[in-house]
Design a protein around this nucleic acid. Structure first.
Length: 476
RNA sequence: GGGCCGUUAGCUCAACUGGUAGAGCAGGAGACUCUUAAUCUCAAGGUUGAAGGUUCGAGUCCUUCACGGCCCA
């Protein structure tokens, strides 16, 4: 058993007075900085520059009196040369008999091998943590999808692309924050545990607060609280956080997912669209995006009605109730579920016939009021609201509107949602009196948006499954 | 929910129409002072996802289940 071998080594080390789990190792430099300083060294060239690096032992090539070791840290990989004549008998033998996966600290002098690989000739070394479990295959890495998701630490150890992907994700989020911070947006935190959920079309998770003796919901969106902050005069706010939706898993859906929402007073959905173009193209440039999607502004804008009519021949606005729409679609050879509400049917036409064809970023604008209970009525087109969803790579990744700020109309919209609930839509939005009361205080004209960060990372990294871009995706 | 594919050593994969489960890497012993998927020698490593069934005999065929992947709804 390999584990037994490793445990036997652990005991042997302890008997030799070596602490296999020391407390710290100060002064470590990233391996990439060693490469940056010396990668122009000629083949076989020597330096007298010493470095201290640390990381996981990933490979070993022994040659009797010398050996080459590969040490991996977050910034990359660096080759270590161990020599008996440099280190001395015992330190050399112990270094060379470490297990792959052990964490080591290396002090060494930079030089270039005969074949031109930058290498540290170890002058001293320290075991920093013993690894008791064998690592994945050093060449093939870890390929089993299930193990990669369930044991992401192994994926990160074995697969450099995974490490780079999650570093990329972090850079995406950092760039988003930088862009918003630079434009006067204030980052805020609103409740995850909510007495009433709202701001989205979804089923919630329910939990229970023991000492309050009441049920609470995990938020499905941050929208209503953020708009209350606009009422409060914070003018430009944003939140990046997890939302939770109690629905099925798919390549585009994880039950908990990261969303950016931002709201801007005195702006409308046209302003927000421009900001989204700028934000995403900024982030793409910051991370050096070089993929197939053209994020450069301006992005195409097409009305929801035209988009659906182009794809299906059905004019949804000419068939403004459930039965008429089902009939019109049937004449075009499209079966719709007759039990759905009218807004659900429109949403179905959009997601099944339009969404997957939208490769480069596209704004679908001006939605029926029935689909958008929190959006302001369109200034010129009756029956519509000022709303857009943004699509790219065949996937929705953002949703925005000119915010409804008339409290009486908001109340009426919530009442309409109640009717949809009564018609069987279990995702319709509940009546939130606290929110309406806040609107009664007076909310300035406001534009707001939600951007799916996981999906944005999928687009920017070319990944086709949300599970690839979430560190620990939900598994059955 | 439906269809298809997959699950074999720690990891990556073999095993023909049913006939003693193999290899590489990792791990063990040894050789080797510029290798980089190092090389060479030797030995070891398995409840073939689970449970049933058919058969003289099942990794292989059948049924059910679990988990995963892809596609569809």
């Amino acid at each position: 058993m390999p584990d037994d071998d490793r445990r036997a080594k652990l005991e042997r080390l302890r008997e030799q007075g070596v602490d296999p789990f020391p407390h710290a190792f100060p002064g470590v430099q990233p391996s990439a900085s060693v490469h940056a300083a010396h990668d122009d060294l000629e083949d076989g060239g020597e330096t007298d520059v010493d470095y201290r690096v640390a990381g996981r032992l990933a490979a070993r090539r022994g040659h009797g009196g010398s050996a080459f070791l590969d040490v991996v840290d977050r910034s990359g990989r660096i080759q270590i040369q161990a020599r008996r004549d440099v280190l001395g008998e015992e330190p050399f033998d112990r270094l060379v008999s470490l297990d792959l996966g052990d964490i080591v600290g290396i002090d060494g002098t930079a030089f270039s091998s005969r074949r031109g690989e930058l290498t540290l000739r170890a002058t001293d070394w320290t075991l920093l943590a013993k690894s008791l479990a064998p690592p994945p295959d050093k060449f093939h890495g870890l390929e089993d999808t299930e193990t990669r998701y369930r044991r992401r630490e192994l994926d990160l150890i074995a697969n450099e692309e995974t490490r780079e992907l999650f570093i990329l994700r972090s850079r995406v989020v950092a760039a988003v924050r930088r862009w918003l911070d630079d434009r006067g947006f204030l980052e805020v935190e609103t409740p995850v545990l909510q007495p009433l959920y709202g701001g989205g079309h979804a089923r919630p998770f329910t939990t229970h607060h023991n000492s309050l003796g009441r049920d609470l919901y995990l938020r499905i969106a941050t929208e209503l609280y953020l708009k209350r902050l606009i009422v409060g005069g914070l003018e430009r706010v944003y939140e990046i956080g997890k939302d939770f939706r109690n629905e099925g898993l798919s390549p585009k859906h994880n039950p908990e997912f990261t969303v950016l929402e931002f709201y801007e007073a005195y702006a409308d959905y046209v302003d927000i669209a421009t900001k989204l173009e700028e934000l995403v193209s900024f982030v793409a440039a910051e991370i050096g995006y070089g993929g197939e999607i053209d994020f450069s502004p301006p992005w195409r804008r097409v009305s929801l009605r035209d988009a659906i009519e182009e794809a299906t021949g059905v004019d949804v606005l000419a068939h403004r109730d459930r039965d008429a729409l089902v009939t019109a679609a049937a004449q075009r050879g499209i079966d719709l579920a007759p039990g759905d509400t009218w807004p659900q049917l429109v949403d179905e036409l959009l997601s099944k016939h339009v969404e997957r064809e939208l490769h480069d970023p596209t704004f679908i604008v001006d939605y029926p009021v029935e689909l958008s209970p929190l959006a302001k009525t369109h200034r010129s087109q009756p029956g519509l609201v000022e709303r857009f969803e943004c699509f790219a790579g065949g996937m929705e990744f953002a949703n925005a509107f000119t915010e409804l700020n008339d409290p009486d109309e908001q109340r009426a919209r919530f009442e309409e949602q109640r009717r949809y609930t009564a018609e069987g839509d279990d995702q319709a939005q509940p009546y939130d009196e606290d929110f309406v009361r806040a609107l009664e205080q007076g909310m300035p004209p406001t534009g707001g948006i939600g951007v799916g960060i996981d999906r944005l990372v999928m687009l920017l990294s070319g990944r086709r499954s949300i599970r690839e871009v979430v560190l620990f995706p939900a598994m059955r």
